[in-house]
Design a protein around this nucleic acid. Structure first.
Lengths: 117, 117
DNA sequence: CCATGTGTGTAGTGTTGACTGCACACTCTA
DNA sequence: TAGAGTGTGCAGTCAACACTACACACATGG
């Protein structure tokens, strides 16, 4: 049940296979946290770190920030800001989309992207 | 700059004009918090309460939960859940919509509502 | 006039979030 | 075989969140 930690470890070790600088210690140092802290996070002995730290981890591992944040049970603060600016509208839309299958949402994304909105 | 508190007070007093049971004390009691706490919140001397408490306040005042949460700088947890289930997809969509005007988003909401999705 | 209700000031509480810092045991490798 | 690097255990910090508890002063209406 610790999606975040195990995913992180898995990703780091994958990278480490081709780049020795991806040891837990070195990554932690680059990201600016204590190695023991990262160790506990990877093993799920500690809850995921802050949004800022997750962002730095994502950058270092070249992972999608939103996905990593999601695994940590969080939602990017800029998305939250966008929703907060028009709460009624976005709330309605998101609740509707929550019940639609992926492909429908994807279709919508595309339509908005290259539509005449 | 204390949108939440002043809005709350304003709404409560509006209701109180026609219903004497909307005193700070009585509302606080119905909602299950200490009057002094609600007092500090309404005056902005304290940051907004938890999502659960905001929900109860919204119910009692017949206000839109999402709007009240937004004023408190929060986003409903069920919306966050929806986003977390498909982070890449939703992140992309919301960032796109953040730059569109209200009417465009509204049009989208309608289209999804009564479209053949 | 006093009992009841009103809002508010001050102080204190338990819990969680987000970490640091150091010591330890193990493993390579030069 | 000493030294550097590896992951980890344990203890502790510091601020914020989300509140409670109680005392106070005012007012008001029966």
């Amino acid at each position: 049940m610790d999606a975040f930690g195990s995913y992180l470890r898995e990703r780091r070790e994958a990278r480490r296979a081709s780049d020795r600088s991806y040891s837990l210690r070195q990554l932690a140092t680059r990201v600016g946290i204590e190695p023991s802290y990262l160790s506990r996070i990877e093993r799920g002995a500690e809850s995921p770190p802050s949004e800022a730290t997750i962002r730095r981890l994502a950058a270092e591992l070249e992972e999608d920030e939103d996905v990593l944040l999601a695994l940590a049970g969080k939602v990017s603060s800029d998305l939250q800001d966008a929703i907060r600016r028009r709460p009624a509208l976005f709330a309605q839309l998101i609740r509707q989309l929550a019940e639609l299958p992926d492909h429908a949402v994807l279709r919508l994304v595309r339509e908005v992207r290259d539509g005449d909105w």
